[in-house]
């Protein structure tokens, strides 16, 4: 007991660091065991490439410029689709959230469409838009629009009416109330929607690129399947994982910046 109290700051930061890194040990151990099993011939390459092979392929794909090329194509599709989805979702949410008439006009329709599994629209999209870039971007845009719309609409309607009333007594015009009170108040909810939309964006991209494409990470993975190259498939999966994680990280940083007023961030 007394030892714990007497522990020096240096000792406590040391153990903090250990606690932080300790959680990465099990996955590391799995990779090591995987490599040992592969080297011993227990896992055939056809089923699963070894970590060393994957690393080698990764380096090769990067140096040959093949991976960066496909990555850029995929990133372009995601950002374009996400951009369109965010703009359209935000516009709809503002129209429906800020006026009763707008809600009557849009909300019922969008709530109905939302229940449709949007990936089921792929056949229709191919019929409508052909097999070029349009159906892929449209799928991402459609998938990301709903989370943005739903969370921003709910956020706008959830803003404390007492704050809006207080804004009125301070002489704010309706436009100023929206700008100073309603929209910032809806932001926490909208950012949750953005994070969710990013997840949906990758998911839609994976589906879109595997159906019909001649470039992109999904195309890379699908061609690798034809040649039984599990190493390339795994490189593709790792790239998806890294992209997903970094997108999430970007939103977290954004949240820290714009939601600095919230008590959960105030602690640090």
């Amino acid at each position: 007991m007394s030892a714990a109290v007497a522990s020096t700051p240096a000792a406590s930061t040391g153990s903090d660091r250990w606690l932080r890194y300790r959680r990465y040990l099990p996955p590391l151990l799995i990779v090591v065991l995987w490599q040992i099993a592969a080297s011993a011939g227990l896992i055939p390459t056809r089923t699963l490439a070894s970590p060393a092979m994957i690393a080698g392929t990764f380096a090769e794909l990067i140096s040959s410029g093949e991976l960066p090329r496909h990555l850029l194509v995929s990133l372009g599709r995601v950002t374009t689709g996400l951009g369109i989805g965010v703009v359209v979702g935000t516009t709809f949410a503002l129209i429906a959230g800020l006026s009763r008439r707008g809600e009557d006009l849009l909300d019922a329709t969008l709530q109905m469409l939302r229940t449709l599994p949007f990936l089921a629209l792929v056949p229709l999209f191919i019929l409508w838009f052909g097999i070029g870039e349009t159906p892929k971007i449209a799928l991402v845009a459609l998938g990301t629009m709903f989370p943005i719309y739903l969370t921003l609409f709910a956020g706008i309607r959830g803003v404390d009416a007492k704050l809006i009333e207080a804004g009125g007594t301070l002489g704010l015009s309706r436009r100023e109330q929206v700008f100073h009170i309603v929209l910032p108040g809806a932001l926490p909810s909208a950012l949750v929607g953005l994070r969710y939309a990013l997840g949906v964006a990758w998911l839609s991209l994976v589906v879109a690129e595997q159906i019909n494409a001649d470039s992109g990470i999904g195309f890379l993975v699908m061609t690798a399947r034809d040649f039984l190259r599990t190493d390339i498939i795994l490189v593709g999966l790792i790239v998806y994982a890294i992209l997903g994680l970094s997108a999430d990280q970007i939103v977290r940083v954004l949240e820290r910046q714009v939601l600095a007023w919230r008590p959960s961030f105030l602690k640090d």
């Binding site: 007492k162 704050l163 009333e165 207080a166 804004g167 007594t169 100073h180 009170i181 910032p184 108040g185 932001l187 007023w261 919230r262």
Partner: peptide
């Protein structure tokens, strides 16, 4: 007006 709650804008 000052209300029962301060009604400051948190952000």
């Amino acid at each position: 007006v000052v209300f029962q709650e301060p009604r400051l804008i948190p952000w």
